[in-house]
Design a protein around this nucleic acid. Sequence first.
DNA 1: CAACTATATTCACATCCAGTTGAATAGCCC
DNA 2: GGGCTATTCAACTGGATGTGAATATAGTTG
Lengths: 110, 110
Amino acid sequence: MRKRPMTVQQLVLVADRFKVLAEPARLQLLQALMAGERTVGELTEGTGLSQANVSKHLQLLLAHGLVARRKAGLFAYYSLADESVFQLCELVCTRLETAARDRQRQLARG
Amino acid sequence: MRKRPMTVQQLVLVADRFKVLAEPARLQLLQALMAGERTVGELTEGTGLSQANVSKHLQLLLAHGLVARRKAGLFAYYSLADESVFQLCELVCTRLETAARDRQRQLARG
DNA sequence: CAACTATATTCACATCCAGTTGAATAGCCC
DNA sequence: GGGCTATTCAACTGGATGTGAATATAGTTG
């Protein structure tokens, strides 16, 4: 809980960050990178997405500072650059779980 | 950090939640509701958005369980139903601030 | 060096979804 | 019925996604 409310500009920035995370494909990529740095090809294979698509999503994640890029030979190695993402996902996930449990309880009772 | 990786279905749900928050107008509405329950008209005036627009955003927030609705006479009173939203915003906000500070430091050094 | 292969990015395009708006509609109170 | 409040409707718009082709870029081979 914040004392001062955020300005609209701040809210726009926060919304932008949420927008980056509001895509299953990108969450998949970030999760795949939890195991360590990966090439585009490996991520393509691991996720089942097309190479062009993976590359585009990685560009966006890179532009927003969520991943880092290392070029070596033919390959581009991507890695995580912002672990806070997983705190966010964890928070959302547990919240969704408790909400689902509450709904379940409501049904059983009502 | 989660032991088991999330399934794609779970990631879709998480992404959906992020999608709801990925809109400055909705964050504005949620923040306005921190002060207590408000009618659509009050929120319209407070945010500068159109009434139809506010109503639509509130419908979405309601459908996702982030706000609650109480009807009384002519008015519909909306209130917060999920405080965890502000933890998320706070996490993002502080992360963005430290990132900006780091960038600033980089510029000063390099 | 030239030709070729492999990896990654970019381009052009089609598609689809979400936000916004003004008008129309529904509900409620007097 | 008349005057509010809120929701819904219809339509436009912009932006984001996904795809296949084309383009770098780097390494390999003859």
